[in-house]
């Protein structure tokens, strides 16, 4: 999205300039790392074993979200219709 027209980047809102977006990604990845690293400091005493593993919320969140998106797409292939589907009632 940001790669399409880099030359008039300057006319864009600062938030959507390519540079800003790159910075935001860096910031985001740093934040991801920091939160996972906190697992060394904080004791998240899990109850069920699995939830006490390292970075559980991180990988669990990522995996379940990916699963949900894929699941939704799969369901969509069956259930999605043109949005004019009901217009000829």
């Amino acid at each position: 999205m940001s790669a399409d027209v880099p030359k008039d980047d300057a006319h864009k809102h600062w938030l959507v300039r390519t540079k800003t977006i790159r910075r935001l990604w860096i910031l985001f990845i740093a934040a991801l790392a920091v939160t996972v690293l906190f697992d060394f400091i904080v004791d998240r005493h899990g109850r069920f074993g699995l939830d006490a593993t390292f970075g559980f919320p991180a990988w669990y969140g990522l995996l379940t979200c990916v699963a949900m998106i894929i699941g939704a797409k799969a369901l969509g292939t069956v259930l999605q219709r043109e949005d004019t589907y009901y217009d000829h009632e």
Binding site: A31, F38, Y60
Partner: peptide, 12 residues
């Protein structure tokens, strides 16, 4: 920590 990890990686 739990909540930040969960949410940020969902965002990822």
């Amino acid at each position: 920590v739990f909540q930040f990890q969960l949410l940020l990686f969902s965002g990822l």
